[in-house]
Nucleic acid binder design. Sequence first.
DNA 1: AAAGCGCCCTGAAGGC
DNA 2: TGCCTTCAGGGCGCTT
Length: 273
Amino acid sequence: MPELPEVETTRRGIEPHVVGQQVTQVIVRQPQLRWPIPPELGEQLPGRRIESVERRAKYLLLKAGDGNLLIHLGMSGRLRVLPADTPIGKHDHLDIVLASGQALRLNDPRRFGAALWICEDPAKHTLFVHLGPEPLSNDFSGATLYKASRKRKVAVKNFIMDSKIVVGVGNIYASEALHRVGILPTRAAGRISRARYDQLAIAIKEVLQASITQGGTTLRDFVGADGGSGYYQLELAVYGKTGQACPRCGPAYRIRNVVLGQRSSFFCTQCQH
DNA sequence: AAAGCGCCCTGAAGGC
DNA sequence: TGCCTTCAGGGCGCTT
């Protein structure tokens, strides 16, 4: 389930293999992803040269002339660069074949991902217009969270997972960051002080950055762009640890699980308030 | 405007 | 063993 660190790791993994490459062919085997892969992708992309691979939120943008290939990995998507004649496997929905003889191959069992062709400036696209700041940028801070949260009654965990507030904070890192700073995920966003939001913003940056540094995290099925393991190496304190001892409070206190906004949330009632 | 939740999908895990 | 059910998850978009 790619979170932002996995997407960034994927971006870095594919970048050297695709930038500067001309696309020779687009092979769509299964167009029914989150949105259907548009015919324009196959019509426009061949013959173009990929100029850059950028990331905005969890979207990857491959710039090719006046258009962009947008890719979202959903929760089970993987991108790999491999020889174009590599036998296809189950759920290999899309190949972008390159002049180098390699192909960028999208595999996505659950098909929550997307591949779109965007002609306009991506920043003006409806998917991007309402996005909040990048969590690792200087545009994101405790002030961002504090200002946006006044009078908001939504649970703080849902609040920090709202892409209009800040992008790229997924379910795992939301729980982890809140535990780090001792904030209860159920607490109303509007009832948290500026000082605590300063800490929270730092914690979000820390967990995301640490995970990117580790080369991406995952629970199960992430494999890096070159096929290497992206298995989660960063120690998770609370996510998925229901019933286990809180690493901060010791064996007398157990991690609890509550569903917020239809997402499992993990926390310790002793050290989080 | 804000909040809540349905939905898209497959595979893993658990129950019987 | 095998079938069935449940759950997981990102995030758009509809409803209240």
